[in-house]
Design a protein around this nucleic acid. Structure first.
Lengths: 321, 321
DNA sequence: GGCCTTCTGTGAGGTTTAATCACATGGCCC
DNA sequence: GGGCCATGTGATTAAACCTCACAGAAGGCC
């Protein structure tokens, strides 16, 4: 009597990685296999289920709605498995633990990490992906990277160091866009949100001349930035995409940004413990500052809008407890 | 850059099945493979992790604490995956959907299901395992099986049909038991609970002469009956085990019940919608009633309650060891 | 004690599954 | 239209996995 009748778990894992990355090549990279292997796995999975999970031309593949739904459900399940597996005690120096938003890790941090490791080969780094709160002591986090808008209510005591501005703007599938496109036309489309940063639309609207955005025709919320962006690529609506996250999709044409990008009021910040960071964490924070400064800006952002940017180095924020 | 570095997912699945069943043979059965395959997978997993997941002689294998922790974390993850996978539209008659506690399904319902299907070959049955609330309309549940104690507060409108008494009593690993064993000695051991039926201890105590149990030295709560029972088998404490669930473990000697079993105040009930059950659900309920009536009772329960009677797998207990 | 039952461990061998490599295909962009 | 980029695919190779059959170990039974 078979209680569980599941498709190949490896195929599901391959599809989940594809879902996060949006491209088979990147998923293959993550899984340390060739793109062909991922292609076969996903194909086999679709056949097994009898459901199309991907669609579109193969140079610009997108997930179907069924695929997006599946991938979104698989991600936390695999996260849970990963967290459950006991890891062998690490030998050698204790790694520097950096807590980070999953999408920021995938699209910004991990690609740059080799640079840090080249500069500091003696400091191993472990990236712990997490959306939620972190605990310096309990989880052993040495430094956390988060988005923080100026009006975020601070509920913890910590040293907060903004290290990068971010630029964001409405992004969507090319099919939905017009050229040129007005603000009204953008607002007439369904809006996509992330649970981790739901204020993105209002944050973005603050930089516009208009006072308030019209209410959206519809809204859909996602657990992760990357799934929101995949939904946008699939033509499900418009998302406010941080430029750093969508840069590659813009270059390849999977997404377009007809209104360009403006500086977000939120900053990307490094958070270290109130009672002093470790030496390694300080080095890492310094590296983040220099990487943040050298991350290129989107072309549009250089032009008209003048940010009232107060880009202070390090401020100390305290809170009543 | 490998983001996820996991052991073989198939090995994890095999171990999870072993965790639920407590025996490799049964896990192999569920996975439709031979016991040798499961044995290899688990061995390979232990080697990969460098952690012992099982211990004890091979005729009486138990999980280690690390194994129990892992299995408990894996089960919901695989449940989530299973729920996420889109199932092909069933062709033919719509199956009768029976919502059921996972352990009850594993240990009682599924082994008897072939009997129902032999009697009604035209009624396909799908068992949906769930601890929580169910929704006749939303989840398409036709009939639910639950435990219900007389003082359960009824928060829904439904037809409730008790179809089986249950007998329960403290069970533990043979190493913890004494022969004979007093109530005091049992109460001096750590107590194990299930989240789904935390009142089991007080429910059981109601049948005793004594008014109240002494407070436990320690308590540990589990999400599922089967993990609680595995913890009991591993010697972690004493659980109140429904006789139907532990029958096989008693026979094989993995567990012993030194105080025997008494009728539980809670009954096992079938729940059908308030506005009339389907014909198939009525047939199924009738079948449950007859199966419930013919399910044998534990030997001691037939006799007038004798609290210091000892129940061992066979008539004799271990006199000399 | 000696026999029997039950369950897991394992060697050898076969089958299925999945990966690689190299190349084909099809959009898109300039 | 040619170059570029990502995916699809055929053939081959490699690995993973399963089965079968038997061995070993523990405990019950008489």
């Amino acid at each position: 009597m078979a209680r569980r009748q599941l498709p190949s778990l490896n195929a599901l894992r391959a599809f989940e990685a594809f879902g996060r990355h949006g491209r088979m090549t990147l998923a293959a990279d993550e899984l340390c296999v060739t793109h062909g292997a991922v292609s076969r796995q996903i194909r086999q999975l679709e056949e097994h289920l009898g459901v199309a999970l991907t669609e579109g031309p193969r140079t610009r593949l997108r997930m179907t709605q069924a695929g997006l739904r599946l991938a979104q459900a698989l991600s936390p399940a695999f996260d849970q498995i990963e967290a459950a597996v006991p890891r062998p005690e690490p030998v050698g120096p204790q790694p520097l633990v950096v807590s980070c938003l999953p999408t920021f890790a995938m699209k910004w941090l991990i690609p740059r990490l080799p640079g840090f490791q080249a500069a500091h080969p003696d400091i191993p780094v472990r990236v712990a992906e997490s959306n939620g709160p972190f605990d310096f002591k309990g989880d052993g986090v040495d430094l956390a990277i988060r988005m923080r808008s100026p009006d975020t209510v601070v509920t913890y005591d910590a040293v907060v160091t903004p290290f990068m501005e971010h630029f964001h703007g409405p992004v969507m599938a090319p099919e939905l866009a017009k050229t040129p496109m007005t603000l009204e036309q953008v607002c007439a489309l369904p809006r996509l949100l992330t649970r981790t940063f739901p204020e993105s639309w209002s944050d973005w609207a603050r930089n516009l001349e208009v006072a308030d955005l019209p209410p959206p025709v519809s809204e859909q919320e996602f657990d992760h930035y990357f799934y929101m962006l995949e939904a946008a690529a699939a033509g499900m609506g418009v998302a406010i995409g941080p430029w750093a996250f969508v840069q590659r999709d813009l270059a390849s044409g999977r997404l377009v940004a007809p209104l360009g990008f403006t500086p977000g009021r939120a900053k990307i910040v490094a958070v270290t413990p109130p009672d002093g960071a470790t030496d390694e964490a300080v080095l890492f924070r310094d590296w983040l500052l220099s990487e943040g400064a050298s991350t290129p800006h989107p072309p549009e952002a250089l032009a008209p809008h003048a940010p009232d940017a107060s880009f202070a180095p390090t401020t100390r924020s305290r809170a009543h407890s």
